Amino acid sequence: MGKVYLIGAGPGAADLITVRGMRLLEQADVVLHDALIEPAMLDYAPNAKRIAVGKRCGQRSTAQHFINKQIVDAALEHGLVVRLKGGDPMLFGRADEEMRALEAAGVEYEVVPGITAALASAATLKRSLTLRGVSRSVALATHSRAPDSETIREQAQADSLVFYMGRDSAPEIAQQLIDAGRPGATPVAIVEACSTVRERSLTLTLAQMALGEAQEWLDPSQPSLLMIGEAFRERASVELKVQLKGMQAAA
């Protein structure tokens, strides 16, 4: 029986995978990969059998229970199996379901972390997720079509709030946060296809997003991230706000 490695591919660019992840890909017999993996990433596994098992919102995709079975079956036939997952395996990646399937089958496995999109998007925007005097807390979330009011209030309390897979629900997310007390003037940064050649970004306010002003700009074929909070305001404005807070504290 082989061993399975759940490897985080990172946010997109092939060279943002960890060195450990790349070396394991080079040795892999089989690679089961997500839909959003950049093709160049698979070049690190020249001798491996490649199996696409990705999920795309609104498109036909492989059922999770079948993915679990494919991973287990691959481990029964091959020595080194890689399950290549976008971003980090342990964040919104259904890694727990795959790990439980491997444990039930008695298959040895290991998790190799990757750079999640929130960190990579903050880097490309040159905006820190945490910022002294402005942002002391960060929440990473996905959007539910019918979230309870308590969930929305909890999300609204985070200084920096990052929504994964929120493209189609962007106006709804914005309005719910405003209703929960978040100011309409709160800055929003949207990053699409982070770290790839297709990367682009848009800045607007929470009120503008609630009115649907981002929807025509967004590309439904690309992954996107909604980043909400004062930390994503223009740097000069943020620095001035920090200085004013310092002056008020001194007074």
Rank of each mutant, 00 (worst) to 15 (best):
V188Y: 00
I51Q: 05
A75H: 08
I7M: 06
G166W: 07
L129K: 03
D168S: 15
G114A: 01
E154Q: 09
E192G: 00
A156P: 02
S121K: 01
S221R: 13
Q243V: 13
D34K: 15
V19Y: 03
A52K: 09
S169R: 09
A174D: 04
V72M: 12
G114L: 03
L177A: 10
I173K: 09
V242C: 03
I17C: 08
T124V: 14
L125W: 00
C57S: 15
A170W: 07
V53R: 04
R50L: 15
P183G: 02
L32F: 05
K245D: 12
R182Y: 00
A174S: 10
G86K: 09
G8D: 11
E154H: 05
Q27T: 05
G133I: 00
V138E: 02
A189M: 00
V53K: 03
M1P: 13
A158S: 07
A210E: 11
A105S: 13
K49Q: 15
S135D: 01
G229W: 02
E108W: 02
H143L: 06
P187D: 01
Q248I: 14
L140C: 01
T62K: 10
Q157R: 14
A174W: 01
E98T: 03
P89R: 06
A141D: 00
L119Y: 03
R145K: 12
M247H: 09
R94W: 07
P147R: 03
V188Q: 01
G114Y: 03
A249P: 09
H78Y: 14
C194K: 02
V107L: 11
T196C: 02
T205E: 09
V82F: 01
M41R: 10
G58T: 12
I67C: 07
R233W: 01
I7K: 09
S160A: 12
A48E: 09
K49T: 15
Q176W: 02
Q176R: 12
D96H: 05
Q248A: 15
E97S: 02
L42R: 08
R83F: 02
G229N: 01
E213A: 14
L206A: 05
A236D: 10
Q215Y: 08
A207P: 06
L125E: 04
K126R: 09
G79E: 14
M41F: 11
I7F: 08
K3W: 08
A95R: 06
G10F: 08
V242N: 01
L36D: 12
S169Y: 07
A14E: 03
G2H: 10
S195F: 05
G12S: 10
M41D: 06
A207D: 15
V111H: 05
Q222H: 13
R23C: 06
A174M: 04
